[in-house]
Amino acid sequence: MTVFQKFREGLVEWVIRASGVASIFIVALILIFLLKEGGGLFQTQKLGDFLLGQKWYPISEPGEFGILPLILGSILVTLGAAAISVPLGVAAAIYIAEVAPSYLKELLKSGVEILAAIPSVVLGFVGLATIVPWMKIIFHLPTGLTAFSGSVVLAFMAMPTIVSIAEDALHSVPRSYKEGAYALGATHWQTIYRVVLPAASPGIMAAVMLGIGRVVGETMAVMMITGNAASIPRGILYPVRTLTATIAAEMGETVQGSEHYFALFSIGIVLFVITFIINMTADMFLHREPK
């Protein structure tokens, strides 16, 4: 190896190492920034009042910064979306991976990918024009801007993530497992239900968690169709305000360094913690040793 080659390889190695470290470095910087900016709130507010307070009146004097209604709003919308998208997504993945004929398989896969490519503001707009009025008529509600409307639209957003990752997991189940099942006289459905699904379950759980992660962080569509009322939600058919929509709707107004500004960053920390836990859980499922 010439000196030049050695130098060149050393350089390449250094560049890719820097790229690898960069992502962690950036996450660390974002976290430090969030903590620094969000921490300012707790010089004047108690952590308990912030997390468990029931009133969100950020621009009043003095402002009230209780985010319990917002946390519950986010949870409600997310649970609703999961209840719709998980069964649908996993069933679609099973169909694509195990049942569909190959021409249909390709068609369905690209269909799911197109669904993933639709910008959330477009889905929100479509939801506003269709789902919101339907909700109002179907459930005889005073308004169609409800948590459930948000859940339905978000379910469409979580579906592509769930389907494609779960499909990958099902696809990577070794062929010998299935052959073994068939050799024992199991039917196609029994093989799927008793052998393929359990073998792929860590991957499917990861798919579900990543799908939920996408729902928690989604902003634009929920802001358009959940009504944004900051009261403790009384049910899934009532308007709610989510954490993400609060940041997006209010950030334009805040004066840098004000309590309101700090409070929005503190909401950012709460969101960061929630998505961090969700991603960690997904990661645990993915890297669990197969039994």
């Binding site: 009322a229 900051a230 009261s231």
Partner: peptide, 9 residues
């Protein structure tokens, strides 16, 4: 405002 008020963009 009532906390039930819908906040419109």
């Amino acid at each position: 405002f009532s906390s039930d008020a819908l906040m419109m963009p």
